[in-house]
Amino acid sequence: MSTETMKKVYSIPESLRNRPHHYCPGCGHGIVLSIVGELVDELGVRDRAVGIAPVGCSVFLYEYYDFDCVQAAHGRAPAVATGLKRANPDLFVISYQGDGDLAAIGTAEIIHAANRSENFSTIFINNAIYGMTGGQMAPTTLLGQKSQTTPYGRNPNTDGFPVRVCELLNSLEGPYYLERVCVATPQDRVKAKKAIKKAFTYQLEGKGFSLVEVLSQCPTNWGMSVLDSVKWVKEVMAQTFPLGVFRDKGQQK
């Protein structure tokens, strides 16, 4: 049967430019990119969406999203998002940050944007490493995990402990919705999309600050095969960073 007479049930989302991206093979970023594209299509918000590209592996997001974008300085995406959304509340603002960007250099910005419950959506990619610069220790690197700058493994006595962002933000009154997901398996991907859809919907409803933390495989910098890396997310990483909903004011009575 020719494809003309068949129904297309999956193709590249219209909200993504039809061009290859630079992410490494098996990288979780690419999967989340598809999810964002699918949801911007499904929610019909492409013509008022603004994507924020941070510094790090997702710095080129503006090359991949097919909607308005702004590139932010390292760690400052929540401040840029605040400025955009306060300047024009009709915009649909998607802030996207990695773990170094959000939980190290930009810790102040994310905490205070969450605390003010700024009405934008944050996607937080936690892959426990600085990917773009070649695999240095991130604030989320696990204890004992080796990286370029913790060649003997992360030592809590000298390097501190992994920062749990959802738990940290959950101590604030401001956030409306906080959930941690992963994209290791097809089932996880379904849950991740559901979470991000919820965050996006809350923004459209004007509910305030949402953050979805995505545990994301980085086979290249973890020095693993792709299949080992998705297994590691589930079996090791999720021990330190438990999956689940931390805050959902939409579900509270």
């Binding site: 590249i12 979780g28 598809s34």
Partner: peptide, 8 residues
């Protein structure tokens, strides 16, 4: 396949 593919 499409859902788990990072490269569209």
């Amino acid at each position: 396949c499409a859902q788990v593919c990072p490269d569209q």
